[in-house]
Write a protein that binds this DNA or RNA. Structure first.
Length: 572
DNA sequence: GCCGTTTTCGGCCCGACTGTTTTCAGTCG
C-alpha cells in the first residue's frame, strides 16, 4: 500500500487530468499537477498535519487543502467523484496513446462515446472516425500505430538499456564530420530508474549531415519525425530516441533545457522572468532588448539566475531550487567517492564468474576493498553449506596475498525469514567479515509483519547491511509493504546500513525512500549486486539513485577509508 | 487554483513538429 501522501498525490494528478480532458482552465490543471508533486514529495506524512499545516505544503492553498481534508475524513473528494462520473477511466487512459492528448480524447468521447483504447481501435477500423473534425487519414494511422506500440513496447525501459542505446548514438554522431559536441540529456542524464525515451543533444557546423546520420543509423528501425533541428527515431526494440541540434552558442542553455525535468524548467524560467529575462533552449535573453546574455555552459545559465549549478540528478523541482537559493544544496556522493563494493556474487552460488575473475576485475576498477557476499543456505536453490562457505573463505584469504592494495572481505548475503531470523547462528555469523541480509521470499506479508521482520533483522548485531530493502523488481515485482519510517528508525538506532542495490532492475532502496531516510540519520551502502564481471559497472546507477535521494558521500559507508569501514563492520 | 523583490489581481514557460487548418490547434518535451 502506498503512503497516504502518494495516494493523495495520485488523486490530485487524476483531478488535473480530468480538468484537462473536460476542457477546464489550463492554469488550474498546472496547479493541481504541481500540488500533486508537492504532496507526493512532502517529507511529513499528511495525516499528521492540520489544515494550516496542509497549506504550508507548496502549491496547496485553501481549496486543495480542503480537498485533502475531505479525503482524510470521508475517503473521497466529491468534486473528483463528479468528474469521474462525467469521464470514464478509459477516456483518461486514451491520453496515454502517443499523439492523443486531452482535446482529441474529449472529442472522441463527446462525439462518438469512445471510452476505451479498445473501443477507439474498433472505431478506427470500422471507419467511424471519418468526417470527425481534426481526424484525418494520417491521424487515424498514427493512432492505430500508437495503440499497437503501447500494447507491444509502450513500457519504459531499464536505465542500462537506455544507456546502451544513448552511448551508441552519441558515439556514432560524434564521429560525423562537423559535430562539435554531443551528449545524452533528458531523464537518462537525471538517472531516473526507468527511461521512456532517450534524448540526445548535439551542436554541429553541419546539422543536416548529423540528422542524416541519425535517421540513417542502424538503430533507426523507424523515423518518427524529421526536421532541420529535431528528429526522432525508434530503435528495433521500440525505444524512441530524439535528437536536437542547436548552434554552438546555445549549448549551455540547450543542455539545461533538454535535461529537464519539465517542472524544473518551468521553475527556472519563472525565476528568469522575475528578472526580466527569458530562458529558452537558445539562451538567456533580456526581455526588453532581446540581447542574449549567456548560454555557453550550464553553470553560466544558473549563475545568471542567481543559482549555483544544480546537479542533473536533483532537477525534479522537488525543493532543489529553493535549496540552491538558500545555498544549501547537498554535496552529492559521486562515483569517484566509491572505494569498494560490498555486495557481489561468484559462481559458488548464482554468479557466473569465479572468485578470482571477480576480484581481478574489482582490482582493475581501482577499489580499495571488495566483499564477496554469496548467498546463504536458506535460499535453497543456491545449495550453499557451511563447508562451502568456509572453503571459500580460505580461497579469499589466499587470494588476498596477490592484492596488497585491495582489502578482500569475506561476507554473505543472508535471507531474512518471515519472522526476521537469518540463516546461521550467531557464532557462525561472527566469523564473517560482513553480513548483509535481505528479503528473498514471502514478499506479500502484511505491513505490520513485514515491518517487524525487517526491524528484527536490523536488531541482529551481526547484520550490518539490509540488502535491496524493498525487494522490488522494476517492471515485474512490487516493493514489499512496510512502515519505512519505522525501519529507518530501527536502522539509525542499531547502526544498520540500508543498501542502494545498483542492479538496473532493482535500484533499491529507491531514491524517494533514500531521501526520506536522510532525516532519520540512516547510513547507506551502495552495492552492485554483481553476478558477473560486467555488472560491477552498474555501480554508476546506484550512485545515480543515491544522488536522486540527495545523498552525500559521508553517509555512504563504502566511501569510507578501510579502517573506518572495518570499525563499523566490527561494532556490535 | 496558487502566488507575490511589479502584483491581494492578473498573471501563470517556451518552442518544434505534425496534420489539416487556408492561418492554426494539438501534442510533446
Amino acid at each position: 500500500m502506498d503512503r497516504i501522501n502518494d495516494e493523495v498525490a495520485a488523486l490530485l494528478q487524476e483531478y488535473a487530468d480530468l480538468i484537462a480532458i473536460t476542457g477546464g482552465d489550463a492554469f488550474k490543471v498546472r496547479v493541481y499537477e504541481k500540488a500533486a508533486r508537492s504532496v507526493g514529495g512532502y517529507a511529513q506524512d499528511i495525516t499528521r498535519l492540520d489544515a494550516a499545516g496542509l497549506r504550508h505544503i507548496p502549491n496547496v492553498g485553501t481549496s486543495i487543502a480542503g480537498k485533502i481534508e475531505e479525503f482524510r475524513q470521508t475517503g473521497v473528494i466529491h468534486q473528483l467523484e463528479e468528474l469521474r462520473v462525467k469521464v470514464p477511466a478509459g477516456v483518461r487512459r486514451l491520453t496515454t496513446i502517443p499523439s492523443l492528448g486531452p482535446k482529441k480524447a474529449m472529442v472522441l468521447y463527446g462525439e462518438l462515446g469512445i471510452g476505451s483504447v479498445e473501443a477507439l481501435e474498433e472505431a478506427i477500423r470500422a471507419g467511424n472516425l471519418h468526417g470527425l473534425h481534426g481526424f484525418g487519414a494520417k491521424t487515424e494511422e498514427n493512432l492505430l500505430h500508437g495503440i499497437e506500440l503501447m500494447n507491444k513496447t509502450g513500457r519504459r525501459v531499464h536505465i542500462d538499456v537506455a544507456m546502451g542505446v544513448a552511448e551508441q548514438v552519441v558515439a556514432e554522431l560524434s564521429a560525423v564530420g562537423g559535430c562539435r559536441r554531443c551528449s545524452f540529456v533528458g531523464s537518462l542524464r537525471r538517472m531516473k530508474d526507468t527511461i521512456g525515451d532517450v534524448d540526445v543533444l548535439a551542436t554541429s557546423g553541419d546539422s543536416a549531415a548529423l540528422m542524416a546520420a541519425f535517421t540513417g543509423s542502424s538503430l533507426a528501425a523507424e523515423v518518427i519525425a524529421s526536421g532541420g533541428t529535431k528528429s526522432s527515431i525508434r530503435t528495433p526494440a521500440g525505444l524512441q530516441v530524439d535528437l536536437r541540434v542547436v548552434h554552438q552558442d546555445s549549448w549551455g542553455a540547450a543542455l539545461q533545457y533538454f535535461t529537464g525535468s519539465k517542472p524544473h524548467n518551468i521553475h527556472t524560467r519563472e525565476i528568469a522572468l522575475h528578472q526580466k529575462l527569458k530562458l529558452s533552449e537558445y539562451g538567456l535573453f533580456d526581455v526588453e532588448t532581446g540581447e542574449r546574455i549567456v548560454s555557453a555552459d550550464e553553470g553560466e545559465v544558473y549563475g545568471r539566475l542567481g543559482l549555483p549549478w544544480i546537479p542533473p540528478t536533483l532537477r525534479e523541482d522537488s525543493g532543489e531550487i529553493e535549496a540552491a537559493l538558500r545555498g544549501e544544496l547537498p554535496v552529492l556522493v559521486s562515483e569517484a567517492d566509491i572505494r569498494g563494493d560490498l555486495h557481489t556474487h561468484t559462481d559458488l552460488t548464482d554468479g557466473v564468474a569465479p572468485l578470482e575473475e571477480m576480484v581481478a576485475a574489482a582490482a582493475k576498477r581501482g577499489y580499495g576493498y571488495y566483499a564477496v557476499t554469496d548467498h546463504a543456505p536458506n535460499l535453497y536453490m543456491q545449495r550453499m553449506t557451511r563447508e562451502k562457505a568456509l572453503a571459500q573463505r580460505e580461497r579469499v584469504r589466499r587470494l588476498a596475498a596477490d592484492y596488497p592494495e585491495l582489502r578482500l572481505l569475506h561476507g554473505t548475503e543472508l535471507n531474512i525469514d518471515p519472522e526476521g531470523d537469518v540463516d546461521w547462528p550467531a557464532e557462525f555469523l561472527a566469523e564473517f567479515d560482513l553480513c548483509l541480509a535481505a528479503v528473498h521470499s514471502h514478499f506479500g506479508q502484511p505491513r505490520a509483519e513485514m515491518t517487524r521482520r525487517i526491524v528484527r533483522a536490523c536488531e541482529n548485531p551481526y547484520v550490518k547491511i539490509i540488502g535491496h530493502p524493498t525487494a522490488r523488481i522494476i517492471g515485474s515485482r512490487e516493493p514489499v509493504d512496510a512502515d519505512w519510517d519505522e525501519v529507518f528508525r530501527a536502522c539509525a538506532r542499531t547502526g544498520t546500513a540500508l543498501e542502494i542495490d545498483a542492479f538496473p532492475d532493482r535500484l533499491d532502496l529507491p531514491a524517494g525512500l533514500v531521501r526520506r531516510a536522510l532525516d532519520f540519520g540512516v547510513l547507506f551502502a551502495i552495492g552492485s549486486d554483481a553476478h558477473a564481471v560486467p555488472h560491477l559497472g552498474n555501480m554508476r546507477y546506484g550512485v545515480g539513485t543515491a544522488q536522486r535521494g540527495w545523498l552525500a558521500a559521508g553517509r555512504v559507508i563504502n566511501t569510507w577509508p578501510i579502517d573506518r569501514l572495518l570499525e563499523f563492520l566490527r561494532s556490535g
